Simulated scan of single mutants.
Amino acid sequence: MGLEKEKYLKIRKAQAQGVRTVEELKEIESLLRNACACKNVTIDEVVKAVENGADTVEKVGEATKAGTGCGRCKGIISDIIENKR
């Protein structure tokens, strides 16, 4: 649930800043597909790691490198782990 709310808030913020075209929204959507910007790890890659047994943020980091940079994505990773249980 937290991830969906975060996506919604990012899209609304982009709209408030003037994003109006489909192309602009597609660019925002592509940014939202990334779980970890530092290591360029997608949400799908994190989900696959969790499905393959990574049940902690640290294990997801070992499998994908997500969360091993600045750490700002650890909340998203944790949400994905909780949603997949």
Rank of each mutant, 00 (worst) to 15 (best):
M1Y: 05
M1V: 01
G2R: 14
L3A: 11
L3F: 12
L3C: 08
K5A: 11
E6I: 06
E6Q: 14
E6R: 15
Y8K: 11
Y8P: 01
Y8A: 08
Y8F: 11
L9Y: 12
L9E: 14
L9R: 12
I11Q: 09
R12G: 06
R12P: 00
K13P: 05
Q15L: 14
G18I: 05
G18Q: 02
G18D: 04
V19T: 13
T21P: 00
T21A: 05
T21I: 01
V22T: 08
E24A: 09
L25A: 00
L25C: 03
K26V: 12
E27G: 12
I28G: 03
I28H: 02
S30N: 07
L31M: 04
L32K: 06
R33D: 12
R33L: 07
R33P: 03
N34Y: 15
N34P: 01
A35K: 00
C36Q: 04
A37T: 12
A37N: 11
C38K: 10
N40C: 10
T42G: 05
T42D: 02
T42C: 01
I43M: 09
I43R: 09
D44K: 10
V46L: 05
V47R: 14
V47C: 05
V47I: 15
V50A: 10
E51A: 14
E51L: 14
E51M: 13
E51H: 12
N52C: 06
N52K: 15
G53A: 15
G53L: 11
A54Y: 02
D55C: 08
D55I: 10
D55W: 07
V57T: 08
E58V: 08
K59Q: 13
V60A: 05
G61D: 01
G61C: 09
G61N: 13
A63N: 04
T64W: 02
T64S: 06
K65W: 09
A66E: 01
G67K: 03
G67S: 03
T68P: 03
G69D: 07
G69L: 04
C70M: 04
C70D: 07
R72F: 06
R72H: 09
C73I: 01
I77Q: 03
S78H: 09
S78Q: 10
D79F: 08
I80R: 02
I80N: 01
I81M: 02
E82V: 07
E82I: 12
K84W: 04
R85W: 07
